[in-house]
Computed example of a mutant assay.
Amino acid sequence: MLFADEPLQLADAELHWLPQWLSPEIADAWLAQLLRETPWSQPQLFIHGRWLATPRQVAWYGDAQARYRYSGVEHCPLPWTPLLAEIRRQVEAEVGQPLNAVLLNLYRDGQDSMGWHSDDEVELGRNPLIASLSLGGERRFDLRRKGGTRIEHSLMLGHGSLLVMAGQTQHHWQHQVAKTRKPCAPRLNLTFRLVGPRHE
């Protein structure tokens, strides 16, 4: 079924949240295998005029042409593993469109984070669809209006949940996963997307 749960009602956004998209057993198995198999890296990114280490570990997989540039770094995709290809198939069936790449983010503890941003790079097209699968420890996901400073909405993204951002969401909203001092288990996040050619 396409988007089985009710959409989140935010103006100028198209958000769908499926908090129990996976069974605990499948989520456990996928998490364990991905943690074991993934060649994690921590690249330097150009942010606010200086180079900084990514505050989490990452890996980029996709079709051969799915090269992706953000924060001054171009990411060349690793080839799909059998497990990631199967996860992609299931996510595509849920969202009803093809997806050719996935960014894996590993938040090892509460000090690993993702700063405020929108997924609005030109390679993602005019109205990108981002499908975000969470495995492992629960983390808070915040949304704010572009140009604003106040958090407008937050979700606790738990083990096996799927959040889909589509339509004009990236035009009007930013999101983050902030640092926290609360004890939290490692979280693995897979963000699937459709990457097109970059036109310079």
Rank of each mutant, 00 (worst) to 15 (best):
L2R: 15
L2Y: 12
P7Q: 10
P7I: 07
L10P: 03
L18W: 14
P19L: 12
W21F: 06
L22V: 11
L22K: 04
S23Q: 07
P24S: 12
P24Q: 08
P24A: 13
E25Q: 14
I26D: 15
W30D: 10
W30I: 12
L31A: 08
A32Q: 09
L34A: 08
L34Q: 07
L35H: 01
L35C: 08
L35M: 11
R36Y: 12
T38L: 07
P39L: 10
W40Q: 02
I47T: 09
I47D: 05
I47V: 11
H48R: 12
G49M: 15
G49N: 06
A53K: 14
T54H: 11
P55Y: 13
V58Y: 08
W60C: 00
W60V: 00
Y61V: 02
A66H: 03
A66D: 05
Y68S: 01
R69S: 02
S71G: 09
E74W: 08
H75G: 01
C76S: 15
C76G: 12
L78S: 06
P79A: 05
P79V: 03
P79I: 04
L83W: 00
L83C: 09
I87R: 02
R88I: 04
R88M: 06
Q90C: 12
V91S: 02
A93N: 03
E94W: 15
G96S: 00
G96M: 03
G96F: 00
Q97W: 02
Q97D: 00
N100E: 02
N100S: 00
S113G: 08
W116P: 09
D119E: 02
D120A: 00
P128D: 06
I130K: 10
S132K: 06
L135F: 00
G136P: 08
R140H: 15
K146H: 13
G148Y: 05
H153W: 14
S154L: 09
L157E: 14
G160W: 04
L163H: 09
L163V: 05
L163G: 09
V164F: 06
V164S: 06
G167A: 15
W173C: 05
W173H: 12
K182L: 06
L188D: 07
L188N: 10
L190F: 13
L190E: 05
T191M: 13
T191E: 07
G196S: 06
E200Y: 04
